[in-house]
Write a protein that binds this DNA or RNA. Structure first.
Length: 382
DNA sequence: AAGACGGGGGG
DNA sequence: CCCCCAGTCTT
């Protein structure tokens, strides 16, 4: 069927002939343009699941190498289930949103314990697992089990908001209901995973956030935003940006008898479960050295001598930015205890690479190296 | 319904 | 700089 000569009204997708025509265009375009990605070569539910979790809020180019390495390290769901959490976090190091890794392993343990290691084959069953929300449940259930659930990720929401000219916030229920209805209308009898991936791919490569390539779009003739708006890219409506506070943060490179002190961040918050050079936020009317002494006492119960600042790096998070000041420091007195951290260790410097460490702390290490020094120098001096 | 949660790439 | 990415969880 040819595309309609006139852009149809909002109900066009409920016309089965129109929906079928649009679906054929999408699938044909996907057949020609789909990228050869590692997870598309696999029909292992565990591998598809891993890819979907890694791709949450993460670009394909970033996730790709992590996916390959993770699968080598944990080839099956059983390997993941029995692994130590630290090993899993280490494999996730640098990818961000570390609760994804922890939830992935929790879910793996549930699946092994309760489902004989087989992933649930329904949307509802998948949704019940930790780390699997509406998008991921729809993606896995369609790609692996051919279930007809539209997968509304950021790409698909953008495509559908424009196609249907939805003016509301796509995260809110009214717009979501419209998008789910449209996705279901587009769903084929079989091959639902391809339809979902076609919409995702279209959003990622053609229906771009700021400069949509409407001339290359296979369904441009169905697009209400294209037909009715001067600038289709005003959709979807974006929630207003929030400003990011900037913090001064200290970290101690603390030595004692040739060992280095590292602390594990507590569960629930930022970078939960990762290991870092201990320290914390500077408070008003407080010097950086005072800040570091106070934080180390509060977190670990020991008194330290703070020496000179040996590195200073800037780092951006989604919701805040920091300047991280690293100081050389020496243990003076007190018994080390995990008061405001999950755990601590006095380690040999060479063992640092066994621990999952936040990006900002890696930046400190790089700054030391760039300055011609090394962690080893600071731990073994005096 | 709103905020927290990492890090990085592209315009 | 700003946007936003194959979102989920908590409150």
């Amino acid at each position: 069927m040819m595309p309609p000569a006139v852009v149809p009204d909002a109900a066009w997708l409920q016309n089965p002939r129109q929906a079928a025509a649009c679906r054929r265009r999408l699938l044909a375009w996907y057949g020609e343009h789909k990228r050869d990605l590692p997870w598309r070569r696999s029909d292992d539910p565990y591998a598809v699941w891993l890819s979907e979790v890694m791709l949450q809020q993460t670009r394909v180019a970033t996730a790709r190498s992590y996916y390959e390495r993770f699968l080598q390290r944990f080839p099956t769901i059983f390997d993941l289930a029995v692994a130590a959490e630290g090993e899993v976090l280490k494999a996730w190091e640098g990818l961000g949103y570390y609760s994804r890794a922890q939830n992935l392993q929790r879910a793996a343990r549930v699946v092994v314990a309760d489902h004989d290691g087989k992933l649930p084959d329904t949307y509802a069953g998948l949704l019940a697992l930790p780390g699997i929300g509406p998008y991921t449940a729809a993606a896995i259930s369609s790609i692996v089990f051919d279930r007809p659930h539209p997968a509304l990720d950021g790409n698909v929401m953008r495509v559908l908001c424009r196609l249907l000219r939805l003016e509301g916030d796509p995260r809110r229920t009214p717009a979501r209901v419209q998008m789910i209805r449209a996705g279901e209308a587009l769903m084929p009898k079989t091959g639902t995973g391809d339809l979902n991936q076609a919409l995702i791919e279209l959003g990622a490569r053609v229906c771009l956030p700021t400069r949509p390539r409407c001339a290359e779009c296979p369904v441009t003739n169905w697009c209400r935003a294209r037909a009715e708006l001067d600038d289709p890219s005003v959709l979807p409506m974006r929630p207003r940006r929030k400003e990011r506070p900037h913090l001064q943060v200290t970290a101690g490179i603390i030595r004692r008898a040739g060992k280095l002190l590292i602390a594990q961040r507590p569960p629930g918050g930022m970078l939960a479960g990762l290991w870092e050079f201990p320290g914390g936020k500077q408070e008003p009317e407080e010097s950086l050295a005072e800040c570091l002494r106070r934080e180390i006492m509060e977190e670990l119960g020991i008194i330290i001598d703070v020496e000179e600042e040996i590195a200073c790096v800037d780092h951006e998070f989604t919701h805040l930015s920091i300047t991280l000041h690293a100081f050389a420091a020496r243990y003076r007195s007190g018994r080390t205890r995990a008061i405001a951290c999950s755990a601590f260790e006095w380690i040999d410097v060479g063992r640092l690479h066994d621990y999952a460490i936040p990006r900002a702390d890696h930046l400190v290490l790089e700054a030391l190296t760039a300055g011609g020094a090394s962690l080893h120098d600071f731990i073994n001096r005096e």
